[in-house]
């Protein structure tokens, strides 16, 4: 067991699960989606991206790319939330909520790709 690999895997899987936690629920109902979870998911995603920086293998490059995609989509979702629900409003309308959650689902796909690559690479090396 390698502490480095544990940390690395932890953040990647946490990013994936938090993303899922945010996305799950009715797509147009803001009460099913927590803006707090979205913000934490963005934070964890950014940390995961940071850990991936500097890996010089092909797999490392792919992991980084997937992570950047997830960041981009989640941050976009957060921006849409801010724009459509300024200061203390009741929450975004159903149409806006659909956009936000769709972006979240896009990020989820990128995170799934990331996790699959990580698992595949680990299984391949079998050390």
């Amino acid at each position: 067991m390698n502490l480095e690999r544990v940390t690395f895997g932890f953040f990647i899987l946490l990013a994936l699960t938090l993303n899922f936690v945010f996305v799950v629920g009715d797509i147009d109902n803001y009460r099913h989606h927590s803006v707090w979870i979205l913000t934490i998911a963005i934070l964890v995603n950014l940390i995961a991206t940071g850990l991936k920086l500097g890996d010089r293998t092909q797999v490392g490059a792919l992991l980084l790319a997937a992570s950047l995609v997830a960041d981009l989509l989640l941050i976009s979702a957060r921006i849409v939330w801010i724009v459509t629900n300024p200061e203390g409003g009741p929450g975004p309308s159903a149409e806006d909520m659909v956009t936000i959650v769709s972006l979240g689902i896009g990020a989820l796909v990128a995170n799934i790709v990331s996790a699959v690559i990580l698992i595949g690479d680990t299984l391949m090396s079998r050390r």
Partner: peptide, 9 residues
């Protein structure tokens, strides 16, 4: 196993 990435390095 060498550390991967800037942070772990």
């Amino acid at each position: 196993d060498p550390p991967r990435g800037y942070f772990f390095n």
